[in-house]
């Protein structure tokens, strides 16, 4: 969904703003000037480094900040010989290197600054952070997240190729509770999601999901509960549905489309129209139905994946 997709991205950006520290975004290569420099010398520094402002430092401690605006003011009043110490903004707003980025963002917003000097807990200047630095770091981090997701997807879809063994099988087991219409379908739903994560083709996933769901509903409706076990191999998926229910007395009859022994309340739920087993038949590549009256039913379903 587009709407939720956008909000998810925003949430991730917000998370990043809390996770990432100022020191990860800041520039460490610092150009600084001392309070004794003249404004003419400061102008040279800006020109050479192509920057628009610098912190003012005296014996490792930050004493002020000076920007191109201060320079323009000095130019208009012909005060280029005055010192940086006279024209700078003293006691500037700073931010600690170990603070989360969101603090820097809110400081930018509060003061309308484009940059903030970064100090450590000993009040020594260690870097400078700009809005651009923050945007770049967040974008880079989103890209890393995206690559990780791509790698995860690739790994999922190449899961079997990456495993070297004579036999590989992943087994998913689910308990199915009798008469539980609220939870009915959870086994099939979970299996569907797992198969999708394993990179199985959507058409095959759909067939497995539909057949498993029908088998699950049969266990919920007609039995006292049972199990669904799916075994995923490189070239086939086998799903077994087992129950200790009343059993089916005439399997051939049960396989006929439209044949049903469902009570009225089941039909009111949209089931019990005698299409379950024929539907399963239509989805599988192979099926075997074994049942003993009074003992239970065992349905084997096989799907080829290649």
């Amino acid at each position: 969904m587009l709407g939720s997709g956008v909000s998810r991205e925003v949430t991730r950006l917000q998370e990043l703003a809390y996770e990432l520290r100022v020191e990860q975004a800041m520039t460490r290569d610092l150009v600084t000037v001392s309070p004794q420099h003249t404004m003419t010398e400061f102008q040279q520094v800006l020109r050479i480094h192509r920057i628009s402002g610098t912190p003012v430092v005296e014996s490792a401690k930050m004493v002020g900040i000076i920007s191109i605006e201060d320079l323009i003011k000095a130019l208009t009043v012909h005060a280029m010989d005055s010192t940086v110490g006279e024209k700078m903004t003293p006691n500037p707003v700073t931010i600690y290197a170990d603070e989360p980025l969101v603090h820097a963002v809110s400081e930018f917003h509060r003061y309308g600054f484009g940059r903030l000097p970064v100090i450590n807990r000993k009040d020594e200047l260690v870097g400078i952070v700009t809005e651009g630095d923050i945007a770049r770091l967040m974008l880079r981090q989103l890209e890393v997240d995206y690559r990780k997701e791509e790698i995860r997807r690739y790994r999922a879809s190449h899961f079997f190729q990456d495993i070297v063994a004579d036999q590989v099988a992943i087994v998913f087991g689910y308990h199915v509770v009798a008469q539980d219409f609220e939870g009915a379908g959870e086994a099939a739903s979970n299996l569907k999601q797992n198969l999708t994560r394993l990179g199985i083709h959507p058409q095959i996933v759909r067939r497995v999901a539909v057949a498993t769901y029908e088998a699950e509903m049969n266990i919920v409706i007609y039995t006292s509960g049972g199990e669904i076990v799916a075994e995923v191999r490189p070239n086939q998926i086998a799903v077994e549905a087992l129950d200790k229910g009343m059993g089916i007395s005439n399997i051939e009859q049960a396989m006929q489309p439209g044949f049903s022994t469902a009570p009225r309340w089941v039909q009111d739920m949209g089931f019990g129209a005698g299409m379950g087993l024929p539907n399963i038949q239509a989805c599988v590549d192979h099926m075997k139905l074994e049942s003993k009256v009074g003992v239970g039913t065992h349905l084997h379903m096989t799907f080829h994946t290649q």
């Binding site: 009915a184 379908g185 099939a188 739903s189 569907k192 959507p202 999901a209 539909v210 739920m269």
Partner: peptide, 12 residues
């Protein structure tokens, strides 16, 4: 009922 959503999910 919720099974309509389940069936829909399974069927794509």
């Amino acid at each position: 009922n919720p099974q309509v959503v389940r069936a829909a999910e399974m069927a794509g």
